[in-house]
Design a protein around this nucleic acid. Structure first.
Length: 474
DNA sequence: TCCAAGTCAATATG
DNA sequence: CATATTGACTTGGA
């Protein structure tokens, strides 16, 4: 196998900020992203005759694999070093809102897992990094913005002519009638901590709940069905993302040093599936950990501790994940311990102080673990299902290995490769952070993996019914 | 239809 | 002020 690196030429493309032809179809006030200045002098390569420039999308299509993690890392550096905000950067360079930028920078997905659309921002970032005047331009924008802002408030002694007058004084005198006319603000649902906990618990038992289950959850939690559905979609996808970043970080530390030794072969064993912590290797068993009193872990949560029941509920995180066959039973109805909160009445404020353990209330404490089910009829046992689940195989696409080259620790910026045009992409992404990845093996990881496994299982089952040689890549 | 991926935009936090 | 989080919406695939 030889990996060819012919990508080089593409690189050059990536470096040119061409005036995009943007096909902005939306009528938003959106600005065209790139500033009109597309200098890009460079001695230009582009042997292509006639072609003017490629649109970003075309660029994305031909772009070689980029190191998303490295890119975001550099972007963050440049931004903070120069006091440039995400909002400005996002709106000006990427055409995204602040929240999206934050998310992207904090949790970049690996290139090969991104869709064409998802790659676009990374290509733009790379382009921006290659632009020698990037910072300067952004600074200018910032100044202009500020100026405009100042001017605005100055001119009008007391604010005025905002674009959107009106609609300010919301008189909600009689809140009862839902006026059909104007839709009000739409109050953005905010799930209470208990609700999230309950949902997470449900997720661990069933990442892909049936419509029926969803209904039940919605009813029990007193939420809209769509909210529950959305929550599951979001949660699944966010968990997946977490796994990606772990994958990236874990993968990066491989080589040490000096020798070039590109080999990576061993890696396969490592990150491949992982889904299993099986492997035996595992070391450290005892999860004690206990880092700080509170778990910050988002996506995991306490999880069930199974103490008693058979059912197998979810896997325990504390221990090694059983990799055998864990079946996903189909308990259709379980009920979380939330009854308490459904008092309804409309009132909704059940604020829960985090981790309060009011003496006496059965609810909270129990809620956490529990193996609910039972309760009423319906023996859940029923199906054992256990279809033999995969073995630990890991199918991986061998394909490109993506090994990074060693890196330069140089802190600063810029790389400037400036002078040379030689930049091959590789140089662009040159360093893959060597940064060290600490060990992240907390049980957090395990929990996530466990959840992911569940997810995988679900997909496998689904696929099983349709026979298809799917290529999974967990 | 369901799902995943990408975003937005309101809110939370710092 | 900035950045981080997150419910909901949009798109595109099957």
């Amino acid at each position: 196998m030889s990996s060819s690196e012919s990508v080089k030429s593409l690189t050059e493309l990536v470096q040119q900020p061409c005036p995009a032809i943007e096909t902005s179809k939306d009528g938003k006030p959106q600005e065209s992203s790139e500033p009109p200045v597309s200098e890009s002098q460079s001695t230009t390569p582009l042997p292509l005759s006639g072609q003017s420039a490629l649109s970003i999308q075309e660029l994305v299509a031909v772009s070689p694999e980029l190191d998303t993690y490295g890119i975001t890392k550099r972007v963050k550096e440049v931004l903070t070093d120069n006091n440039l905000g995400q909002r400005l950067f996002g709106e000006t360079i990427l055409g995204l809102t602040q929240g999206s930028v934050s998310d992207l920078l904090a949790r970049p997905k690996p290139w090969h897992k991104l869709s064409l659309k998802g790659r676009e921002p990374f290509v733009r970032m790379q382009l921006w990094l290659n632009d020698p005047n990037n910072v300067e331009k952004l600074m200018d924008m910032k100044r202009m913005e500020k100026k405009a802002y100042m001017k605005r408030r100055h001119s009008s002694v007391s604010d005025s002519q905002p674009c959107e007058p009106s609609s300010v004084g919301i008189d909600y005198s009689q809140g009862a009638s839902p006026q059909p006319q104007h839709q009000l603000k739409k109050p953005r649902v905010v799930l209470a901590p208990e609700e999230k906990e309950a949902l997470k618990r449900a997720y661990q038992q069933k990442p892909y709940p049936s419509p029926k289950t969803i209904e039940e959850l919605a009813t029990q939690l007193n939420l809209k069905t769509s909210t529950v559905i959305n929550w599951f979609h979001n949660y699944r996808s966010r968990i997946r993302r977490e796994l990606f970043i772990e994958e990236i970080q874990a993968g990066s530390q491989s080589q040490a040093g000096s020798s070039d030794s590109p080999s990576a072969r061993s890696s396969r064993a490592v990150h491949s599936s992982e889904g299993d912590s099986c492997d035996g290797v595992d070391t450290e068993g005892p999860p004690e950990g206990k880092q700080s009193g509170l778990e910050a872990d988002e996506y995991s949560n306490a999880t069930t501790k199974s103490q008693g029941g058979q059912a197998e509920s979810a896997f325990e995180v504390g221990e090694e994940v059983p990799q055998d066959a864990r079946s996903s039973e189909k308990t259709e109805s379980f009920h979380l311990g939330m009854e308490s909160l459904e008092d309804t009445d409309d009132e909704g404020r059940l604020k829960a102080p985090r981790q309060s353990s009011p003496p006496g209330s059965q609810s909270s404490g129990e809620t956490l673990e529990t193996m609910p089910n039972s309760a009423t009829e319906e023996d859940a046992s029923t199906s054992a299902a256990s279809t033999s689940v995969l073995t630990g195989e890991s199918s991986f696409k061998s394909k490109e290995s993506s090994e990074k080259m060693l890196s330069v620790p140089s802190t600063s910026s810029t790389l400037a490769a400036g002078s040379q045009k030689a930049n091959s992409i590789q140089s662009l992404f040159s360093f893959s952070e060597a940064a060290s990845s600490k060990n992240t093996r907390d049980n957090t990881l395990r929990k996530k993996k466990a959840a992911n496994l569940n997810n995988i299982i679900h997909r496998l089952e689904k696929a099983a019914s349709r026979e298809e040689p799917v290529e999974w890549e967990f």
